[in-house]
């Protein structure tokens, strides 16, 4: 049956090609959605890990979401430094703000801290900040080195550009000195969003709690929960569409091949073997579509404004799932193959 199946695939190449491209596009979209959902946690992870902290000290009662940390008095750092287990502590400001770049207003996330923290930011181009009024911006801001940007009425010069540093679904991080960040976010008041520590703090002064990096990441991702859930639901929907495309193709093929099935049965072929041939066609189409989808997804990441980070396991899950989709899709044609009466072969043209 393998030879007959492959010949039929070649014979109906155009028909199969259309199905492979159609299902392939759907698979690509499914992969992009996987990448989109994954992108939210990847961007948070990269930003949080970028601080190089062992723990975060934040206001008691705060969820730990980076984009919505309630302000703390900057001098509280003294109390934090005296806590057992803390080797060093640095204040940080993290807050979404608008930035005007070349006359256009864009959303960004201001991140301010001491030079030791800001200097950790990996640069794609330019240099790190060395004075007030200088910033490092993520490429997504669209502001190359040398560009002036305006935030809260203050003008900053981009001296360095980094990449992969975003939050809240692709908002670019803009790194600056602590005092500049306080000026932009808190009108210059000596308040901060959190303290990051080296060493894990023991009992903290009243009104402060500590969180691990993982907890901060989880709390920040929680804000995207409904978005991620919608994306995952859409991804399941995509699987259904791919299955329907493959099932339609296999069913139409079964209809077109009714006479062939009757002849093959008359020649002694069993229904099980006929079904095996159909299932094989469906699997070949599904897997080919999955491969096309994987290839296309690399070129389609620009479809979304948010960061798309396709997880490696998707490249394994997609072909395996395609196999399952193909087998399920071929079930729709099972009855057709089994119920064909071989006497039909005797009917005239």
């Amino acid at each position: 049956m393998l030879g007959i199946t492959l010949s039929d695939l070649r014979f109906r190449a155009r028909q199969f090609l259309i199905a492979v491209l159609g299902a392939g596009l759907v698979f690509a979209m499914s992969m992009l959605l996987s990448g989109l959902a994954n992108g939210f946690s990847v961007e948070i992870n990269q930003t949080v890990q970028g601080f190089g902290a062992d723990a975060w000290v934040i206001a008691q009662g705060s969820s730990g979401r980076l984009s919505a940390l309630p302000p703390l008095e900057e001098f509280s750092v003294i109390g934090v430094l005296s806590v057992p287990g803390v080797r060093s502590a640095a204040p940080v400001v993290v807050q979404p703000k608008e930035a005007t770049v070349a006359g256009s207003v864009a959303s960004a996330v201001v991140i301010g801290s001491v030079p030791a923290v800001i200097n950790r930011v990996p640069l794609q181009s330019g240099r790190t900040t060395s004075a007030s009024g200088e910033v490092i911006a993520d490429t997504r801001l669209g502001a190359p080195v040398g560009t002036d940007i305006v935030m809260a009425g203050r003008t900053f010069r981009v001296v360095g550009v980094t990449s992969g540093r975003t939050l809240v679904g692709g908002l670019p991080d803009v790194y600056m000195s602590l005092s500049d960040a306080q000026a932009v976010c808190f009108n210059g008041l000596p308040v901060v969003s959190a303290f990051i520590t080296h060493g894990t703090p023991g009992s903290l002064p009243k009104g402060l709690v500590s969180m691990s990096n993982a907890k901060v990441e989880a709390a920040t991702l929680q804000a995207m929960k409904t978005g991620v859930s919608s994306i995952n639901n859409s991804r399941i929907f995509m699987w259904f569409i791919a299955a329907i495309i493959v099932a339609s193709l296999v069913y139409v093929t079964a209809l077109q091949r009714t006479r062939d099935f009757a002849v093959l049965k008359a020649l002694g072929c069993s229904s099980v073997r006929l079904f095996g041939g159909l299932a094989l066609e469906a699997v070949i189409v599904s897997v080919a579509a999955a491969l096309v989808g994987m290839a296309l997804s690399n070129y389609m990441t620009g479809v979304f404004a948010q960061p798309v980070d396709i997880p490696i396991n998707a490249f394994v899950v997609i072909p395996v799932s395609a196999l399952v989709v193909g087998l399920l899709a071929s079930l729709i044609a099972l009855r057709r193959a089994v119920s064909v009466d071989p006497v039909t072969a005797f009917a005239g043209a």
């Binding site: 109906r12 062939d260 009757a262 002849v263 020649l267 005797f346």
Partner: peptide, 19 residues
């Protein structure tokens, strides 16, 4: 019996078009 004992020539030839 179908496979080995009998050979059938169908009215409309009934060849498999893809082969």
């Amino acid at each position: 019996h179908r496979r080995e004992t009998v050979g059938v020539v169908f009215q409309a030839f009934n060849l498999i078009a893809s082969l």
